[in-house]
């Protein structure tokens, strides 16, 4: 891998003599991520390779594709949003598959560290507002410059979730209740269709002691209701125990909304709540899906099996949203 990367980098990075320290990072089953340093006389440069896996991928019908991801990251970078610079799109002669190489941004993506470590104590109170501003920037990227993306609606999302859930052939009355709730409250098309990141949450955000440094993983980017991104980051599954701080376990909805509005965009709180319910159900269905792949796919791992036992977490969160109990 290191030799292939070295040849690749030498072909487009002037003065580069190879790469060192190539390691595969954990994470995405649907995409491979490698970290390495480009060796250069002026000093080594940290880089990340993101490429299609050999063989099996997750929900390819939903993925924007690696070329679209690369152009979205570059567009975000050029618009001054926290996004890594894209250095190179893989070519057939690179013999590395499809994907791209980008600059590596230092920082933390592990939620428990971001929520508990002392070095992020100054950043935590700022993050919700910062992320509101970043989302406003993403939603403001001009549609005419975007690559070709899926157009998603709430109705389509409900239909897809219902189809996935039914394919598991395992009755979940709470999921049924949530599906009905969503069908009955579908708010229809948004006032404005925008770029939606689609997976804006812990794990896909690089955080430093100064706050948010980069937004990663545009795999699920699409066109749709911008309030979807605001709802998704409020899903309880991304609070990691800090359940009274709806935005990623570090902030309030009010701070998120304030950052968004200060950047000149409007918030529809009812739609955000609708998408939070959708997102909670979506994560629950995804947990079931990973368990299915443990059964049928090549990845017969204990981690995947155990994720199936996390779907009940989303059931209690759905009940807390749809049928709250009094203390």
């Amino acid at each position: 891998m290191q030799a292939l990367l070295g040849d690749c980098v030498a072909s487009w990075y002037p003065g580069a003599s190879g790469v060192t320290g190539a390691v595969r990072l954990s994470g995405g089953a649907s995409q491979e991520t490698w970290s390495f340093d480009i060796v250069h006389p002026d000093g080594n440069v940290g880089a990340i390779l993101r490429r299609a896996p050999q063989g099996y991928g997750a929900a390819p019908s939903r993925a924007a594709g690696l070329n679209a991801e690369a152009s979205l990251m570059q567009l975000a970078h050029e618009a001054g949003l926290p996004s890594p610079r894209v250095m190179h799109l893989l070519q057939p002669q690179d013999r590395l598959g499809t994907g791209f190489i980008m600059e590596r941004v230092d920082g933390e993506t592990i939620p428990r560290k971001i929520l508990r470590d002392e070095q992020f104590s100054q950043a935590r109170p700022l993050l919700a507002r910062q992320l509101g501003k970043v989302l406003a920037g993403i939603h403001g990227l001009p549609l005419t410059q975007l690559p070709k993306l899926r157009r998603m609606t709430a109705a389509k999302e409900i239909t897809e979730l219902e189809r996935d859930y039914r394919s598991f052939e395992w009755p979940r009355p709470v999921f049924e209740l949530a599906l009905r709730w969503l069908q009955e409250r579908d708010p229809g098309p948004p006032a404005e269709v925008t770029l939606v990141h689609g997976d804006f949450r812990h794990g896909n955000l690089i955080i430093g002691p100064d706050g948010v440094r980069a937004v990663l993983d545009w795999e699920l980017a699409h066109l749709g209701d911008p309030m979807e991104d605001l709802g998704w980051i409020c899903v309880n599954s991304w609070r990691f125990g800090e359940i009274d701080k709806p935005v990623g376990g570090f902030g309030s909805r009010e701070e998120l909304f304030a950052g968004y509005q200060a950047a000149g965009r409007r918030v529809d709180a009812d739609r955000v709540m609708f998408w939070e319910v959708m997102g909670t159900l979506r994560w629950g269905v995804m947990c079931c899906g990973m368990m299915q792949r443990f059964r049928t796919g090549p990845e017969h791992s204990i981690e995947r099996a155990m994720i199936g036992r996390r779907s009940s977490e989303t059931e209690i969160d759905l009940l807390r949203l749809l049928s709250p109990r009094q203390p």
């Binding site: 709470v174 309880n236 609070r239 359940i243 977490e313 059931e315 209690i316 969160d317 109990r325 009094q326």
Partner: peptide, 26 residues
């Protein structure tokens, strides 16, 4: 019924889940 059933699932699946602990105290 749904609350009771869900609480019984969490007691097996994830008894440390914060939402569960909060509801258990109610």
């Amino acid at each position: 019924h749904l609350w009771q059933t869900t609480m019984e699932k969490l007691a097996v699946d994830q008894p440390n889940y914060a939402s569960y602990k909060r509801e258990l105290a109610k």
